[in-house]
Write a protein that binds this DNA or RNA. Structure first.
Length: 429
RNA sequence: GGUGAGGUGGCCGAGAGGCUGAAGGCGGCGGUUUGCUAAACCGUUGUAGGGCCCAAAAGCUCUACCCAGGGUUCGAAUCCCUGCCUCACCGCCA
């Protein structure tokens, strides 16, 4: 959520910056301003009446005590009570509309974010490693996995439908090893606290991160009298760890990591990545989340992105980092880096992590504040999140980059301890 | 799922229709005292939204907030309804 005061006082600037995201914010901002004006008109009216009502009430109390009759005051108050009810209803309606507008407006891009309209405008800011060269035609991961007997889409489809997969044997073990490896790296070397959060969350939590009210169609909501949703990412429970809290500024930054499965409806992506593990309704991810002070959040974004890249470097997987342009950024983000890993079968880099600074956007929605030095006025923290990494896509990258002519897969040395010392996945394992 | 007891400020804890933004205590902050610490004493101490003022801050002022949402009433922390949560016991269960 944008700062309502800032929006009101800097309307042209807000409009120009939102426009770079590729939509016309004019009508929405106009409605927001209209609601705000109406709201400010009504508030003093209601409050003055309330003050009169209070004063009158005190007069009634005094009269009663002194044994005088107060029927005329009571009669006037009765009329005023009806007036107040009416005005309050009008005010509430306006404020509901105002809040709804505010909640559906995306974040303002940070000044360092390049203006652009699509992924084609995202500048590459970093490249690491070299793409492996093969003296044979590299296969896509679904063929490798099927041949090795560790990746099964047919059986998954039978029990769950499209966009689900079964990992088994060395495949399941590899998935678990990657989770373990990532969590160990982030907790031991990068200073994150490991968390095991709920995988189902309520509407308020999803509103806090920005998934609701606008993107309900992307979520799986559970049936019955519950109003709970499967988490689309651990960013949601981790960010909501401190919802409606005032943190001690001396403890910032707070850094959390969690492994969770993630669930996404993938509504509207019917044609994309239909084969393989790239786009699933359920996938594993190790997430990184930080709560920081406003002045340090962008430096912390750089550090968080490095923490995610380190996973790939330890695994020896080539990658590049791109800076998302204004038109390609997510709703809540002020600045986002995507990390993309090399996939030999596609001869291209594919997203494996997305690291964002939402600044105060989520903090304002979720009411996450801090006091500098533990005292003074509470201010909103800045929240950051990033994948560290998407586990399924990491598994894909290991299969494809580590494949050999005989169909076996070389396990990166850093991962071998987590695989019981196995150096390669051989057919039949 | 059943029964009972509860949810009041940073914490503990009073209040049971008007004089209560809320006694008292603890903690925090400022001060007095002190060689230092402690103690004692004095003062102060929530959040949000309006208005005035305004470059801004401060200041002044109003309104709201005693788990949440409704209701009764001229007037609700206090009465009624619903929901959520906590605790205890029972039942069921990985």
């Amino acid at each position: 959520m944008l700062d309502p005061g800032y929006v009101k006082d800097h309307l042209p600037d807000v409009e120009a910056r939102l426009r770079t995201r590729g939509f016309d914010p004019g009508p929405e901002l106009a409605e927001l301003a209209a609601c705000d004006a109406e709201r400010r008109r009504l508030i003093p009216l209601v409050e003055n009446l309330k003050r009169d009502q209070k004063t009158a009430g005190e007069a009634v109390a005094r009269a009663k005590k002194e044994g005088r009759d107060a029927a005329d005051v009571v009669a006037a108050s009765k009329t005023r009570a009806a007036e107040i009810r009416e005005l309050e209803a009008a005010l509430e309606a306006v404020e509901a509309r105002w809040r709804e507008r505010l909640l559906t407006l995306p974040n303002l891009p940070h000044e360092s974010v390049p203006v652009g309209t699509s992924a084609a405008d995202n500048p590459e800011v970093r490249r690491w490693g070299t793409a492996p060269s093969f003296d044979f035609e590299p296969k896509p991961h679904w063929e490798l996995g099927a041949a090795l007997g560790i990746l099964d889409f047919e059986r998954a489809t039978r029990m769950s439908g499209a966009r689900f997969a079964v990992l088994s044997g060395a495949g399941a073990r590899l998935e678990r090893a990657l989770i373990d490896f990532m969590l160990d790296l982030h907790t031991r070397d990068h200073g994150y606290r490991e968390v095991e959060p709920p995988f189902l969350v309520n509407r308020a939590a999803l509103t806090g991160t920005g998934n609701l009210p606008k993107f309900e169609q992307d979520l799986f909501r559970i049936a019955g009298d519950w109003d709970l949703f499967l988490i689309p990412t651990a960013e949601v429970p981790l960010t909501n760890l401190h919802r409606e809290e005032i943190l001690d500024g001396r403890l910032l930054p707070l850094k959390y990591t969690a492994y969770t499965p993630c669930f996404r409806s993938e509504a509207g992506s019917y044609g994309a990545d239909v084969r393989g593990l790239i786009r699933q309704h359920q996938f594993d991810k190790v997430e990184l989340v930080k709560f920081t002070t406003p002045d340090s959040s962008h430096a912390e974004l750089e550090a968080l992105t490095r923490d995610a890249e380190t996973v790939l470097e330890r695994l020896g997987l080539p990658y590049r980092r791109v800076l998302l342009c204004t038109g390609d950024m997510g709703f809540a983000s002020a600045k986002t880096y995507d990390i993309e890993v090399w996939l030999p079968s596609q001869q291209t880099y594919r997203e494996i992590s997305s690291c964002s600074n939402t600044e105060a956007f989520q903090a304002r929605r979720a009411q996450i504040r801090y006091r500098a030095d533990g005292t003074g006025k509470p201010q909103f923290v800045h929240t950051l999140n990033g994948s560290g990494l998407a586990v399924g896509r990491t598994l894909i990258a290991i299969l494809e980059n580590g494949q050999r002519r005989d169909g076996s897969i070389a396990i990166p040395p850093a991962l071998q301890p987590y695989m019981g010392g196995v150096e390669a996945i051989e057919p039949g394992s």
